[in-house]
Amino acid sequence: MTKTRATPIEDDAPRREIIRAAAELFMDLGYRATSIDAIAERMGATKGRVYHWYGSKAEIYFDVQINAMQKLIDLIEPIARGGGTPRERLERMARAHVDILLHDLPMQKVSVQGLETHVISSTGTRHTKAMRDIVRLRDDYEQMFCEVIDEGTRQGVFVDLPARMLSKPFFGALNWLTIWYRPRRLQTEEDLEAIAENLTGFAMRGILKEQER
Rank of each mutant, 00 (worst) to 15 (best):
R154T: 02
Q187H: 15
I79G: 11
I39Q: 05
G201M: 12
M43T: 12
I207A: 03
I19R: 12
M43Y: 14
V159F: 02
G48W: 03
T128Y: 09
R132C: 00
L137F: 03
S121D: 15
D11I: 12
W176N: 13
I39V: 14
A58W: 04
A96S: 14
L90M: 10
L192R: 13
I76D: 06
D63R: 09
F202I: 11
W53P: 04
S111N: 11
D11M: 08
I100E: 01
F202H: 14
S56M: 12
T125R: 02
A40P: 09
F26T: 11
A13I: 01
I134L: 00
A80M: 05
D104I: 00
R182D: 15
A194P: 01
G152E: 04
E190T: 09
R185C: 01
E116H: 14
T123R: 08
Q143C: 00
A96N: 09
I100F: 02
E10F: 02
G84P: 13
A163F: 04
I60T: 05
S122N: 15
R15N: 00
R32A: 11
S167D: 09
T7Y: 10
E210K: 10
G206Q: 06
V50D: 10
E142Q: 08
R87H: 10
A80R: 03
E189A: 13
E77N: 10
I79C: 02
R15E: 00
L115F: 01
L186T: 10
M69T: 08
I39W: 08
N67Q: 10
V135T: 10
K47E: 13
G83Q: 00
I195H: 07
Q108L: 05
A21V: 02
P183A: 06
D160Y: 01
E41A: 14
A96M: 12
L166R: 04
R184K: 14
I66D: 08
V157Q: 12
I9C: 08
L115D: 09
F202E: 12
Y54A: 06
M131E: 03
I79M: 08
T125F: 04
R184S: 03
G30M: 09
I73Q: 10
D140P: 00
M27L: 15
R154Q: 12
K47N: 02
H127C: 12
G30T: 11
E190P: 09
P162E: 09
T2C: 03
I36C: 05
Q113I: 01
R164T: 00
T128V: 07
L208H: 09
D140Y: 00
L177H: 05
L161S: 12
S56Y: 06
K71V: 01
E197M: 00
G48E: 05
F145D: 02
Q211E: 11
I149P: 12
G201D: 14
Y51E: 10
H97V: 03
H97L: 11
S35D: 08
D28H: 15
R126N: 11
M165Q: 04
H127W: 15
I120M: 15
R32C: 02
L208I: 03
D63Y: 07
K109H: 05
Y54W: 13
Y51I: 08
E197C: 09
H97W: 15
I76P: 06
T46D: 15
N198T: 03
F158I: 02
E197D: 13
I9G: 07
T178N: 08
T128Q: 05
E189M: 10
L25P: 15
V159L: 04
T125H: 03
A23L: 06
